[in-house]
Amino acid sequence: MDVAAIDRGKADLAGHSGSDDLMVGMKSVRVWGTLGWHDIRQRYRRSVIGPFWFTLSTAIMVVVLGALYSTLLHQDVKDYLPYLAVGLVVWGYLSSVANEGCNAFIGAAYLIKQLRIPLTIHVCRIVWRNFVILLHSFPVVVVLLIAFGHWPTLEFLLVPIGLFTLLLHGVWVGVTLGVLCARFRDIPPIVTNLIQVVFFFTPVMWSPEILKDRAWVAEYNPLYHLIETVRAPITGRPIHWESWAWSIGLLIVGFAFSQYLMRRARNRVPYWL
């Protein structure tokens, strides 16, 4: 299946190097799109509801955690559940991309050693797979918004832009971690444990307002701003330009750094695997 999908997209893969690996790989939508769908289909092969298990598991988690933490944090359930739902869905995407990105090239070693294709394709495959999972979880958010009487405002038009920036963030994160982890095999467990710690310092289940004069903990957390670019327009919260500035600025810096790594290490990765 992997080789067949790559064969169909050979025209998109010709003549790439470390300097244009990112661009050629991202443009090969036919290849990484097919591979990503194949991964999801294989994971839920012979399942009755297939990928909608993501929707069900998200709904259960939101209801259980929402009932608990809305009481502990003294939050109104009508506002808290949609807030929590979006936070968990976006965090699930970001954490999965980071964890799986660590093994993007290690897991695809058999392909990398046999075929000269852009390394970015292996990252885009992971990013696309997790983005589809994110989209399968979003019906939970929609149901909660309708159930509690939250209707879309004009700011809701920013949601597709926020989701697209998340998609792009996943690419540079996956490329960066993929290259570093191929060279240094101690990094994947470090990333896994770091994500677990950062989760508690990121306003996913709690709001920055409850910190009062210590709200800077959230304001200087880039992950909070990435989540807010999607959560604020969905839930009707005030949209702060700082969140978009953080998101776009981090996107530029991240792609610049991942491009630097590709130029330096693209031809060395097969020898590290």
Rank of each mutant, 00 (worst) to 15 (best):
residue 186 D to A: 09
residue 264 R to T: 14
residue 14 A to I: 11
residue 73 L to H: 13
residue 22 L to E: 09
residue 236 G to F: 13
residue 162 G to E: 00
residue 2 D to N: 14
residue 260 Y to L: 14
residue 216 W to S: 05
residue 174 G to N: 06
residue 262 M to Q: 13
residue 225 H to I: 10
residue 51 P to R: 00
residue 190 I to E: 08
residue 115 L to R: 12
residue 15 G to D: 06
residue 187 I to M: 09
residue 64 V to T: 14
residue 196 Q to W: 07
residue 155 E to I: 00
residue 179 V to R: 01
residue 123 V to P: 00
residue 218 A to G: 13
residue 15 G to W: 03
residue 256 A to V: 12
residue 86 V to C: 02
residue 203 P to E: 06
residue 19 S to P: 00
residue 115 L to Q: 10
residue 145 L to I: 04
residue 56 L to Y: 12
residue 63 V to N: 01
residue 72 L to H: 07
residue 50 G to P: 03
residue 50 G to M: 01
residue 227 I to G: 01
residue 75 Q to T: 08
residue 21 D to A: 00
residue 14 A to V: 15
residue 32 W to E: 03
residue 7 D to T: 13
residue 129 R to I: 07
residue 271 Y to E: 08
residue 52 F to L: 14
residue 197 V to L: 13
residue 36 G to D: 05
residue 64 V to Q: 05
residue 35 L to M: 13
residue 44 Y to Q: 00
residue 183 R to T: 04
residue 223 L to T: 09
residue 68 L to W: 11
residue 178 G to T: 03
residue 147 A to Q: 11
residue 37 W to I: 15
residue 76 D to S: 15
residue 139 P to N: 08
residue 182 A to V: 09
residue 260 Y to S: 07
residue 11 A to T: 11
residue 124 C to S: 09
residue 154 L to S: 15
residue 257 F to K: 09
residue 7 D to Y: 11
residue 44 Y to M: 00
residue 103 N to L: 12
residue 272 W to G: 06
residue 51 P to Y: 05
residue 231 R to N: 03
residue 207 S to T: 14
residue 155 E to N: 14
residue 260 Y to H: 15
residue 98 A to C: 11
residue 218 A to Y: 04
residue 209 E to Y: 04
residue 54 F to L: 01
residue 193 N to C: 12
residue 6 I to K: 06
residue 113 K to Q: 15
residue 119 L to H: 10
residue 180 L to S: 06
residue 261 L to H: 08
residue 94 L to R: 04
residue 146 I to L: 15
residue 114 Q to T: 10
residue 112 I to L: 05
residue 260 Y to D: 09
residue 150 H to S: 11
residue 116 R to P: 02
residue 40 I to G: 14
residue 48 V to M: 02
residue 40 I to D: 12
residue 187 I to W: 02
residue 178 G to S: 05
residue 237 R to Q: 13
residue 261 L to M: 12
residue 203 P to V: 05
residue 178 G to M: 01
residue 208 P to V: 14
residue 257 F to G: 06
residue 161 I to T: 13
residue 166 L to H: 00
residue 247 S to C: 09
residue 67 A to K: 07
residue 229 T to H: 02
residue 270 P to H: 08
residue 270 P to S: 08
residue 26 M to P: 02
residue 28 S to R: 07
residue 152 P to D: 11
residue 90 V to S: 05
residue 240 H to P: 03
residue 28 S to D: 10
residue 5 A to W: 00
residue 93 Y to T: 04
residue 94 L to E: 03
residue 195 I to Q: 08
residue 30 R to C: 04
residue 48 V to A: 08
residue 25 G to P: 01
residue 21 D to W: 05
residue 76 D to G: 12
residue 202 T to Y: 05
residue 87 G to Q: 05
residue 104 A to K: 01
residue 243 S to Q: 08
residue 188 P to E: 08
residue 107 G to R: 10
residue 22 L to Y: 12
residue 231 R to G: 04
residue 245 A to D: 01
residue 107 G to I: 05
residue 99 N to S: 15
residue 22 L to W: 11
residue 187 I to Q: 02
residue 23 M to L: 15
residue 70 S to Y: 05
residue 149 G to N: 13
residue 199 F to G: 03
residue 63 V to K: 03
residue 194 L to R: 07
residue 38 H to Y: 11
residue 51 P to I: 06
residue 226 L to G: 00
residue 224 Y to P: 04
residue 16 H to I: 13
residue 134 L to R: 02
residue 93 Y to K: 01
residue 165 T to S: 14
residue 160 P to M: 10
residue 100 E to M: 09
residue 27 K to N: 13
residue 92 G to T: 00
residue 12 D to K: 01
